[in-house]
Design a binder for these strands. Structure first.
Lengths: 326, 326
DNA sequence: TTGTATGCGTTATCAG
DNA sequence: CTGATAACGCATACAA
């Protein structure tokens, strides 16, 4: 096609396309011209078949419609596309079985590598996948050949949030937890406890209520707290969505935020800054985390050792938390 | 591989894999067994090369991290995956040039079809793309061969929202518009005007302020309204994000929602039900719209005429709007 | 530096 | 009903 238009062989075209070997400048020009004239675009399927690579990397996200994973996906896309790699997004819905199926789909498509955003797969399963193709996982800390893990410091994040409230004078701080079998959530709880301990505030189990990372569970958590007559002046929710639900529950009970109750969330979603009142939160740089995951994958694909390092958590103080009156 | 394991030819394996022809039951069993034993999964790249199809459909979304498009993507994924098709998501960021580049990427990958979610491409450009491969577009109404358009009734939606406020006794209703070169936004404005007219309420240009579909622009719009000393008792924002920003602006000015100002949004994002106060909005069933787009694509790919029809808008009344006090 | 031959894994077109 | 055989579009080893 292009080859005969430029009067050379297909191999030569391939060579200029990939820079595999030096070619005569004249022929190169002729080929480039022919490519432009014919609007030729190499067929990735054929390249994949011949070269063993598909120029696509699979991304197992948990929800396509999550502000958090959405930002991460954006970071991944922006890192990958300019390098000629296409991300293939599939969503696991926080379910190990679904995730495994997702990975099967990706493997069936012969993706060059897989990026897993958190999820419920076991570390073992992940390591196992890594023997077949490079794997980058966000939200774990494990080591294995062809496997790179990027983990955000949820412990420190939990600690920062709690310390912030303590510094504002709060001592009765409720904690709305995330799923118990979710490592991130447990780390945040650990941070909460550590901050309490450092301030010599006794841990009160009654102040910890379970949640499920969505708004409704935050709302219900506050209801439960109130129903059990717990006394508290502040709430730390393990993510922003639950914090928002908690704020609504407070409003329904005529508890003013922050006058009566201070609330701190986690994630610092873009929308949190427009919550009423704007939410104090621990920033988790989703876009950057996504971008770094992709960069790490790029390294892995180039047979290099990834060195990407995750930025630390940062507290963003807004209007939902204030000094305890008193 | 599988072929020789089962003692048959590759063609026969292909036949049972695709159901292309009837195969002897015994051989079929032997092949199935071999497939299971070897954990064989056909290579889509090779299938694509040989058969001219890639079993993937490109999806041009506008933002990977948007609650609205996220839900649509979820609908698309769930309709496509079970049929063995993989969606390939790329994001155009509301920019015609970027979108065109996205489509190039998709075409380079030889996707079997393209689904475009709204966007800024011209109808002409879209029709043009449709000569190469099937196209489904959400948010337009145009007709062309191999092109199916699904459009949501934004006019009626705008009308419903405004009528709701009128029925509550409001007559001074501000409108926070979307981008002027955005057809959806203009339709909503038309609906607003139509409702006003039907109720014999004179249209006041001073009550219409531009916005850009994000929270901040909603906030600024209210500031501007207040700065120009407009009198109004209600606000209809062309989307929920701006409505949330508007609510925050009101709160900052000590205008209570809904006691002093009623607010109605558009889209009914999942989070809107947890806004403070929970937001009255016009439901736009993003998940369903996505699913229907995918179903239409399936029809197109099967050389059938799509018949998918979009559900109409529906007003969801919550606490951000109430009867005007007398 | 370049062309030729071969193979990647699968489907389609033939004969049989 | 089934098996050869060619073809899909490209990359690579090899030969020149």
């Amino acid at each position: 096609m292009v080859a005969q238009a430029a009067g050379v062989s297909a191999s030569t075209v391939s060579r200029v396309l990939n820079g595999t070997a030096v070619v005569n400048e004249e022929k190169k020009q002729a080929i480039d011209a022919a490519i432009a004239r014919l609007g030729f675009v190499p067929n990735p399927a054929a390249r994949g078949l011949a070269g063993g690579r598909t120029f696509s990397v699979g991304v197992v996200t948990q929800a396509l419609d999550s502000p958090f994973y959405g930002a991460a996906m954006r970071g991944i896309e922006e890192a990958l596309l300019p390098r000629g790699l296409s991300p293939l997004f599939v969503s696991g819905h926080w379910n190990a079985v679904t995730e495994a199926r997702c990975i099967s789909v990706l493997q069936a498509r012969r993706v060059d590598g897989i990026i897993v955003l958190t999820g419920r797969l076991t570390d073992e399963a992940l390591k196992n996948y890594a023997v077949t193709q490079p794997v980058v996982v966000l939200g774990r800390s494990l080591k294995a050949p062809h496997l790179y893990a990027l983990s955000f410091d949820n412990f420190l994040g939990g600690r920062l949030a709690t310390e912030h409230l303590i510094q504002l004078g709060h001592r009765r701080i409720a904690f709305i937890a995330g799923d118990a079998d979710h490592p991130d959530a447990n780390e945040r709880l650990r941070g909460y406890r550590a901050a309490l301990e450092a301030a010599s505030i006794p841990f009160d189990e009654g102040l910890v209520v379970p949640g499920e990372y969505h708004e409704l569970s935050g709302l219900l958590a506050v209801d439960r707290l109130l129903a059990t007559h717990q006394r508290f002046t502040a709430i730390f929710a393990a993510n922003d969505q639950m914090a928002v639900g908690a704020a609504l529950a407070c409003q329904r009970r005529s508890l003013r935020v922050p006058e009566d109750i201070s609330i701190v969330g986690f994630d610092d979603l873009p929308t949190s800054q427009y919550a009423i009142p704007p939410l104090t939160s621990v920033e988790q740089p989703a876009y950057e985390l996504g971008r770094l995951s992709a960069m790490a994958m790029l390294q892995l694909l180039a047979d290099a050792e990834p060195t990407e390092v995750v930025p630390g958590p940062r507290l963003v103080a807004r209007e939902s938390s204030r000094r305890l009156k008193g």
